[in-house]
Design a protein around this nucleic acid. Structure first.
Lengths: 194, 194
DNA sequence: GCTGTGCATTGATGTATGATAAGTAATGAA
DNA sequence: TTCATTACTTATCATACATCAATGCACAGC
């Protein structure tokens, strides 16, 4: 499983097998069953997960008990809660598997060691952060500006291969609407032939 | 004006006057009148701005011509559009001054030079990015989970000193509601004594 | 094969917020 | 000061979406 992670890294930064071995002690492989909670809301846990196979959801539960999907993370995504991973504060959201999932659990130390060992590592991580920010800004803009139908169309365009792996209830909660509304949106789109 | 920026930097990272002078050529001072557009939507411009004094708004205009505030940036905030600054793609939003504003315009090169010159610079910037992400995740969660009133209350708690500097129309567009709705929310809150 | 459980759909009804328009207050220029 | 302009509020009506409740449907376990 670590090989998947290594090959992934090698696609983006030059890293020798030796260097990877030096970092390897900061990595833990996890095979996790569907519907397992990895991080609890309001707890502190400084893990980052890299998804080798499977699918993860980050979500909050509001005071009414309703769930709200913050993001989904399929293969080759990095997952953490900034509050707890980076700032050692209680986490904003839950992190849970939606499928049987193979993970690499990455410690804080890994980042420090990798930055020293491989000069390209830190700039690459920075790029990922920038990318994540522009992605979220776009999402905020959609939540402010667009109707349910537009948001759903954007979602299926963005994640064509996730649409059928994620229950509609959760997609609805990602879009900020109820499952019933999503169902109606889909019905309208179906008549339009989408 | 560059001194304000220097003093700001020195609060967070060790930087000598000499080092700052070396970087200084990558900085341009700008005094900008109220209501000046700094970055146009859908254009490419690799500037970052640091706000010394004044106030900036980032916003989009949708196909109906409606404006949507992405964020506000008062004193000591960094402002850029990731799309154009970092990825050399057309910008997602407009950036505009809401007050007469003193800015430091920072080139891409500044980041590279500073990272080489001052080891603490890059990690500090990374921290700012992480912070920005958790802030946006919280905002997305509010947009998904909370009603207009809650979102407004969060806004005034978050930016107590901005509430009276930003026109309500723009606050409303930040919250994803109309100015009329905000007016109603405020009326309800006023009767509650807030 | 049944039967239970969880998700998706559908329908009826309610409500927060939008749209439009008009009125009032604040600001700023001549 | 007056007039013009912009900002905010109020009122009425419209609507997107929520809520509540019922039904359908598929898959798992017996």
């Amino acid at each position: 499983m670590k090989n998947i992670f290594k090959e992934y890294l090698q696609k983006y930064i030059p890293i020798t097998d030796e260097q990877f071995d030096q970092l390897s002690s900061e990595l833990t492989i996890k095979h996790v069953k569907k519907n397992t909670i990895l991080i609890e809301q309001d707890t502190i846990d400084d893990s980052t997960f890299f998804v080798c196979n499977g699918l993860i959801r980050a979500y909050t539960i509001d005071h009414q008990g309703k769930e709200h999907a913050i993001f989904f993370a399929p293969e080759h995504w990095w997952v953490n809660d900034k509050n707890s991973f980076y700032f050692c504060e209680p986490s904003l959201f839950y992190v849970e598997t939606l499928e049987d999932t193979d993970l690499v659990q990455i410690s804080r130390k890994f980042y420090d060691k990798a930055a020293i060992l491989i000069p390209e590592f830190a700039p690459w991580q920075t790029k990922i952060l920038h990318n994540s920010i522009r992605f979220m800004q776009k999402r905020i803009n959609l939540l402010l500006a667009a109707q349910a139908e537009t948001r759903y169309l954007d979602f299926i365009k963005m994640y064509p291969n996730l649409v059928h792996r994620i229950p509609q209830t959760m997609i609805a909660s990602y879009l900020g609407i109820t499952p019933e509304s999503l169902s109606r949106v889909r019905k309208v789109l179906a008549t339009k032939g989408i």
